[in-house]
Simulated scan of single mutants.
Amino acid sequence: MNDPTFTDTPISRCAYYRRTCGLPAGIHPEAGRIVVKAGFVGAITMPARLGLRVRDDMLFRGCPLGPVVAHIRSRRWTFLCRPDIPEDNSLFTELFRLDVAVVPFGGEIALPSPADSQIPSRTWIVPPRDTFRPSGAVVIDYLRACARKPIR
């Protein structure tokens, strides 16, 4: 299929993220990187090992997953969620100790882009298929539960 109308480009991928997934994505023109500003969308970033445990625990307990992005070089995962995490310094301190961060309002959330195809830097662990994103507070609850359990 060499028809260029079916080629995956940053513009076509960004349009998919916007129309189908309800993600207000934009493109950095110099790099072709696709980003979403935190605000309408929330995001929680954590080490991949912890992210794997959180994802598996959510699946095991029947909690629906939203999109999850892997940042390959930094070995971190970002869970996209609803931005309902309260501004609470004690919560942010607790998360900091776990090497977890809530992307602040206005912060950029980088999404996988076809521009990454030469040297992939981001990939979907759980790709977005629609507008669903779990509550950020629920993801935090699963994260806390997983952090308390010893690694086997």
Rank of each mutant, 00 (worst) to 15 (best):
C14H: 09
A15T: 15
Y16N: 09
Y16Q: 14
R19V: 14
R19K: 14
T20F: 11
T20W: 11
C21V: 13
C21H: 10
G22S: 09
A25C: 12
A25N: 14
H28A: 11
P29E: 15
E30H: 09
R33A: 14
R33C: 07
I34C: 05
I34F: 08
V36A: 08
V36H: 11
K37I: 01
K37P: 00
A38I: 10
F40V: 15
F40R: 15
F40K: 13
V41S: 03
G42S: 09
G42W: 02
A43I: 03
M46D: 03
M46A: 13
M46K: 00
P47F: 03
P47N: 10
A48T: 09
A48G: 09
R53E: 00
R55F: 01
D57R: 08
D57M: 02
G62N: 06
G62D: 04
C63F: 06
C63H: 06
C63K: 00
L65R: 03
G66S: 04
A70N: 11
I72G: 05
R75T: 01
R76Q: 14
R76P: 10
W77R: 06
C81F: 03
C81E: 02
R82T: 03
R82V: 02
D84G: 08
D84I: 08
D84R: 07
I85C: 08
P86C: 00
S90Y: 02
S90P: 00
L91H: 07
T93M: 11
T93V: 09
E94M: 13
L95H: 08
L98P: 05
L98T: 06
A101V: 15
A101S: 15
V103C: 15
V103K: 14
V103D: 09
F105S: 12
G106D: 07
I109K: 11
L111M: 11
S113H: 11
S113V: 06
P114M: 13
D116K: 13
D116G: 10
D116R: 14
Q118C: 02
S121Q: 06
S121A: 08
T123R: 13
I125D: 00
I125L: 10
P127W: 04
P127D: 00
R129P: 00
